[in-house]
Design a protein around this nucleic acid. Structure first.
Lengths: 144, 144
DNA sequence: TTTATTTAAGATAAAATTGTCTTAAATAAA
DNA sequence: TTTATTTAAGACAATTTTATCTTAAATAAA
């Protein structure tokens, strides 16, 4: 469904957020230990999310990544997916046609419309705050 | 959403089916002209669908691909997707966890459940017959 | 039987994605 | 100021996916 880059990005964000709720900055090494992902690749992805303003970072000793606590309920999953994979998942044609719409639909067009809308709505209404809370309370896990 | 291989496979099947409704066998060259896909790659994918019994083929002059007319309403989209991409789209964890279920859910597990179920249901209830009919009647297109 | 046509199958190549490594820049503490 | 630690950035490498090319096998017509 999502690319590996997006999978790692989402998991990293959730872990960073869960620690930011405890006022903890985390280093990339700690992140990948908790989400089971390749360090350098994950660092690059989280770096992209820093550039886009979703995550904050501090370099040097005692540095690391964190997320503004009061913004956690404003950052939606769709922001993360879009920042890494773009919006083709929501907008692109299911059969890969360049131009596919109600006027000139591919054979599966109307079948896909609802599912894509549901996916978009789900990602649009899910905040990193709620996901991080689920993790912190032990209701969900990021590894295995 | 789907791989290129699956996109080509679905489009090829729909075109072959639409022609089989007119009692026409089609060569791979004709198929790719109508679905705008690379010949050799498409041939390999259609070949895999032949092996699995979804498509029939005849080699040699006057040969080509076709689909048993009376089976068109039995072949579902899910059969094609599964034959090419496997079932990871429906069963795999959205965040890539090996073990992710109601017992040990990833943070997005319950958010994904409904969407995946809807996707599966859609593919499971869509026959190549109806898609081929939509194409033949001009209600849908395979190119552009 | 020979030839032409077509699918079958597998080797090879190109492109995209995923992943690693090296060096630079920032920053805090000694 | 020097050193150690950490993120930033970009080159490089491996893997997977996508795509092509070549040869074989099947088959129909001449």
């Amino acid at each position: 469904m999502f690319s590996k880059a997006t999978e790692y990005g989402i998991k990293a964000i959730i872990y960073i957020a869960s620690q930011s709720m405890l006022e903890r900055r985390v280093k990339i090494g700690e992140v990948v230990e908790h989400i089971d992902s390749p360090v350098a690749f994950t660092a690059k992805i989280v770096g992209a999310l820093v550039k886009v303003g979703i995550v904050q970072s501090i370099t040097g000793p005692y540095g690391g990544f964190y997320i503004d606590r009061h913004r956690m309920d404003q950052i939606k999953m769709i922001d993360i997916v879009t920042a890494i994979d773009g919006d083709s998942i929501f907008n692109g044609c299911g059969l890969g046609l360049k131009e596919c719409d109600d006027e000139q639909p591919c054979p599966m067009h109307y079948k896909f419309v609802q599912i894509r809308a549901d996916l978009k709505e789900m990602l649009n209404s899910t905040t990193i705050l709620e996901l991080a809370e689920g993790l912190k309370s032990g209701k969900s896990i990021l590894m295995r």
